[in-house]
């Protein structure tokens, strides 16, 4: 078997129960459970999270606004089946740590059809990019309180990773200007 870095899985993190799952990046992992565990290790080093989803990058049908304007885009063959699809959408060019947010699930004969349906259904904001993912390929963290406590709560106590832990150290630059610099702080 040839050596690889394992397949890529996109990771979706939900920060609080009232917020949507958001695409935060990807992990390389070998199988679904491993991908989910890895996502927790990589993306929950800091608060905060209450739920994680992962999906193989190869199962994602992605379309940008620019691509939409150019006409239909063929979706990946491996995923072109009827069933439930999860829809994710990007709506802002603002600086952010996340890309597309979860907007909802719908039944469709193909990813392309799911996208067309989404364009009619989710019209509350301009869409700059879409991801369409078969629900069957999404792996989700357990929702039990025990799992949430075990996977997501401890990060809140690792305060040494927060800059606020170090308080104000030294004298701020603004106070030093023009003082020649050699004073004791």
């Amino acid at each position: 078997m040839s050596d690889t870095q394992w397949p890529r899985w996109e990771v979706f993190k939900q920060d609080t129960p009232n917020k949507p799952h958001q695409a935060v990046g990807s992990v390389h992992a070998a199988d679904p459970l491993h991908a989910l565990l890895t996502a927790r290790n990589v993306f929950v080093r800091r608060p905060q999270a209450v739920s994680l989803w992962v999906a193989p990058a190869s199962a994602i049908f992605s379309v940008t606004q620019e691509e939409l304007a150019e006409g239909p885009k063929p979706s990946p063959e491996s995923t072109g089946v009827a069933g439930a699809y999860l829809l994710f959408r990007k709506t802002s060019h603002k600086r952010s740590m996340t890309f597309v947010d979860y907007v909802g699930q719908l039944e469709a004969p193909s990813p392309q059809a799911a996208l067309e349906q989404a364009l009619r259904q989710f019209t509350d904001a301009e869409a700059l990019a879409w991801w369409v993912i078969p629900a069957s390929s999404v792996v989700r963290s357990e929702e039990s309180p025990e799992t949430v406590e075990s996977w997501f709560a401890p990060a809140k106590e690792k305060t040494y990773k927060q800059q606020s832990y170090y308080g104000v150290v030294g004298t701020h630059t603004s106070k030093l200007r023009g003082r020649g610099g050699a004073d004791e702080s």
Binding site: Q5, V27, H28, A29, L37, T38, N41, V42, R45
Partner: peptide, 8 residues
């Protein structure tokens, strides 16, 4: 053996 496991 891989970045992800280093982190884990």
């Amino acid at each position: 053996p891989i970045l992800e496991e280093d982190i884990a």
